[in-house]
Each structure stands twice: as structure tokens, then as C-alpha cells.
Simulated assay, not measured.
Amino acid sequence: MPAIVHFEVRIDPERRDEAAKYLAETLAATRAWPGNQGIEALVDDADPCHILVVETWATTQDHDDYAAWRTTPEGKSSLGEILAAPPSKQVYSETLPLGL
């Protein structure tokens, strides 16, 4: 099963106008990473500084390899410069059978 990753960020309200630029730069590398099958950034209707990035990966290992790269000097992103709080991440790679 593919891995679905939810990466939530809260943008500093004073930097909100820069969010698209920073996210586009950061997510270009994510999109290009082997195993990435898709990515989108969703803006919360109630709070435009709350953004949910939804990533689809071929495998959890593909995402883990990407996440490890992000901790290196080569993989470091400038996204942190506009965040109001540390991001959060959840990885989903198992489904519940619902019998539908």
C-alpha cells in the first residue's frame, strides 16, 4: 500500500504572502524524490496560515529515505524561516477494512 503523509505547517501571519514561494521551492524537491507519487498543499478555510501538505509515496521506505535526506545540509529547506510553530507529520500506511 502507498504511504500517505500529512505534513502540517503554521505560517507566521506576517509572512503569509511568502508561503506559496517557500512551499513551491521546498515541495519541488519533494515531488522530484524517487517514490513520490503526488503532492498538494491545502489551505485551511478557517485559517489561511494553516496549511496541510498531503504527500503520496510508493512505500513508507521511500518517504523515510526522503525524510532522512531533509536532515542533511544538502536537503535542508528554508521553509522554517516562515513558520510560526514547528511542523507536525503523520504517516499512514495501513487501512482499516470497512466492509463496504
Results as ranks from 00 to 15, higher is better:
Leu42Trp: 05
Ala68Thr: 15
Ala19Pro: 00
Tyr92Arg: 11
Leu79Pro: 01
Pro86Asp: 10
Ser93Val: 00
Ser93His: 04
Leu27Asn: 15
His6Phe: 15
Leu100Cys: 05
Trp69Phe: 14
Arg31Gly: 01
Ala68Ser: 12
Leu23Ala: 05
Tyr66Phe: 15
Glu94Gly: 03
Pro2Thr: 13
Leu96Pro: 00
Ala32Pro: 00
Ala28Leu: 11
Val54Cys: 05
Leu27Asp: 12
Val53Lys: 06
Val9Thr: 09
Leu79Gly: 12
Ala32His: 08
Glu81Met: 08
Pro87Asp: 04
Ala28Asp: 11
Gly75Val: 09
Met1Cys: 03
Asp45Phe: 06
Gly38Lys: 12
Thr30Phe: 01
Ile4Trp: 02
Ala19Asn: 01
Leu27Trp: 07
Ala85Trp: 02
Gln37Val: 08
Ile4Lys: 03
Val43Thr: 14
Glu81Leu: 15
His6Trp: 12
Arg10Ser: 12
Asp12Pro: 00
Val43Asp: 05
Ala28Ser: 12
Leu96Phe: 01
Asp12Thr: 01
Asp45Thr: 11
Ala32Arg: 10
Arg31Thr: 08
Gly38Ile: 09
Pro97His: 06
Ser93Phe: 04
Thr56Pro: 05
Ile51Phe: 08
Gly38Leu: 05
Gly75Trp: 04
Thr72Val: 13
Ala29Leu: 13
Pro13Glu: 09
Pro86Tyr: 06
Leu52Ile: 10
Pro13Ala: 12
Lys89Pro: 00
Glu74Phe: 07
Ser93Ile: 01
Asp47Ser: 03
Val43Glu: 08
Ser88Leu: 08
Leu52Trp: 09
